[in-house]
Design a protein around this nucleic acid. Structure first.
Lengths: 211, 211
DNA sequence: CACAATACCGGGACACTGTTACGTTACGCC
DNA sequence: GGCGTAACGTAACAGTGTCCCGGTATTGTG
């Protein structure tokens, strides 16, 4: 009973690709519900039927970056030296950010401690982090990062790659060959530092010292 | 000749404080020209007379963060050990970001290689970076960072503190005491790594290797 | 086969946004 | 006092996200 849905999977896909094209070509602020609907040739109503609202549409788009992140991260092969593997994973983060520069901010906006674990988008984002944690965990077990745990190292690396990505996407790191060297040197130096025991005065996991 | 200006320095100040209050209380998206004008009790025209447009208003607000950054950075005293001083400067960056959390994104948006050197806002932003560069330069001259130059070290530190600030403002670093430990450990480990000679395969300044 | 119930659709309306053109007003100068 | 001029407030314009209303297509039922 009732009129059957017209806005099905293909309209949904068309809206997403249209939104992605506009976003890729002109940036996030150029994406409007009316415009996306007009490109597809449907009404704004379709957006509100298929996604809840504009945020839902953008949220679906950020699945795109999250998937790009996952792809690059899981494409990194296992290596004998976990240090080499972590460096490659950092460069995978860079590659994903450069592949979807306009979506990168959307991706990082998903990072939140209050994220719902059952949310498929969060789960997808977490897979990339988990890929890194796997190696780090192995390295910690092997005594590569004395006095540190996997989360401490993971957080540090996350902060660094996000900072590097932010700077590069703003053009601060120069052209691509220069930028990749900055990444190599920065991540490399960080990994060297992490292999030394942490300075006293605070626990390595970030919790305050139990005095 | 001509009607005298009514929208002088005090209207300007009132608009700025009103905008800052709204931004502080409800975030950046809540700031609208009409609303700011209504709070002050004047017309939208005043905003366009005193500032060029809304971006000009926000731009003036970002002077606020830039000034906060400068204040915290220049409050850090000279120390015997440049490593200690750099760590304190990193914590100064953190303090400034935490003092104006809603404005932090505006601050970072000002970072661009295409920034106009004559722009007073850019000049203000650059003072904080220059404060760091001064110590780093001294350390490089003393041979503390073998095989690296001041810009390589400065960029690395900038990426790290921006990443840490971004994570902390999103609540990822936990409560304040935990977060400050994360900062100390991360910046500390980074400084340890930078004191080791860089890995071969690329120049430390980020430029591609001259093979 | 007719009909009403139903679930969806498109277009228009609403409350906003930033920005600008317009008519008005208030001053200094002649 | 009249006039030119510059700044004023208002109102309009084009755009945004969102939501409601009249219409419509389908389908179970009489």
């Amino acid at each position: 009973m009732g009129r059957p849905k017209e806005h099905g999977a293909q309209t949904r896909a068309a809206l997403l690709t249209a939104a992605a094209e506009i976003l890729h070509a002109e940036g996030a602020q150029a994406v409007s519900v009316r415009r996306v609907a007009a490109v597809v040739g449907t009404s704004t109503r379709a957006v509100y039927s298929l996604f809840d609202d504009k945020e839902g549409l953008l949220r679906e788009l950020s699945m795109d970056v999250a998937e790009t992140m996952r792809r690059h991260h899981e494409a990194v092969p296992s290596m004998d030296d976990p240090i080499d593997e972590i460096l490659e994973l950092a460069l995978a983060y860079r590659a994903a950010a450069r592949e979807k520069p306009q979506l990168y901010d959307l991706f990082f906006a998903m990072v939140s401690p209050r994220a719902d674990r059952a949310d498929p988008l969060f789960a997808l984002v977490y897979r990339s982090f988990e890929r890194v944690l796997t190696v780090v965990r192995r390295a910690v077990a092997a005594g590569v990062f004395p006095g540190r745990d996997e989360f401490s190292v993971g957080r540090h690396l996350f902060a660094l790659v996000h900072g590097l990505a932010s700077l590069e996407l703003r053009g601060v790191l120069g052209d691509a060959p220069t930028a990749v060297n900055v990444w190599r040197q920065s991540v490399g130096a960080t990994l060297v530092g992490l292999q030394q025991p942490p300075a006293p005065g605070g626990r390595a996991d970030g919790a305050p010292a139990a005095t």
